[in-house]
Amino acid sequence: MSLPARSLAVPVAAVPPPSAKIIALSLPSRETLAERLLGLGRATMENVLPPLLMLAIIVGLWEFFCSQPGASLPPPSKVVSSTWELITDPFYDRGGLDKGLFWHLIASLKRVAIGYAFAAVAGVALGTLVGLSTWAMRGLDPIFQVLRTVPPLAWLPLSLAAFRDGNPSAIFVIFITAIWPIIINTAVGVRNIPADYNNVARVIRLSHLEYFYKIMVPATVPYMFTGLRIGIGLSWLAIVAAEMLIGGVGIGFFIWDAWNSSLIADIIVVLVYVGLVGFVLDRIVAFVGTLITHGTAAN
């Protein structure tokens, strides 16, 4: 493209180059716009099509096998038809435990929010302490390492005994489940602050407070969010199990109640909801993390 333009410009001097330039610039830009749209479409296809295809295959197989006589689980067509009210009207409320899925999910999310918030605050504080002080680390780290392996539900009877009420017990289970990864990751982050950053802080003579929010917090935040993300996942895992045992409004008890009433189709619908909510929770925490670190975690 550029070669003929140059050979024209030499003999005729000033006039032709602009026209040659316009052609050279406009053509590729038109191409890239079309290409970009095409590329975008292709990328969407590449990302959306495979999961949709897999989903269709799985549902198809499920439909096939569960339609056989003597199948113990309902096929997807039956799940949808028998739970149509549950799917289409998540907001009904007939008092007591007879509520739409939305209210059950909200009740569970509320418990998770409270327990997780406490875990985040306490976890970051304890993690910072353990990361900063060698003595705190020596004293607390072995205890943390043992306690974090205790399964979440094993705490439930103890917390029921302590709180004498289901709701705070469930919240405590969330708290104790989510706190360990937050503590451990925060502590690792604080301990891994590069010596160079500390030297810079000493040369500039930052005060303790300035060091805290100008060096330590930004350097630790990526680690913190790794812990927070693991924590939210574990919380959502634990709430369903805890609610099955404590009863009341909540997605866990809804599943247990459906099982007791032999409403297998209801259980399947709820499992889909639980999975989707867990996915969204994980993405929210991850999104907040990238927002705060500006993607500058790595150097």
């Binding site: 950053y197 030297n199 810079v200 000493r202 040369v203 500058t296």
Partner: peptide, 19 residues
């Protein structure tokens, strides 16, 4: 006996704060 800005250091690996 203490670090200070009157003896500013240029570190070998730049040591800029990445954020």
């Amino acid at each position: 006996d203490t670090p200070g800005p009157d003896r500013a250091v240029v570190f070998q690996n730049h040591s800029l704060l990445p954020w």
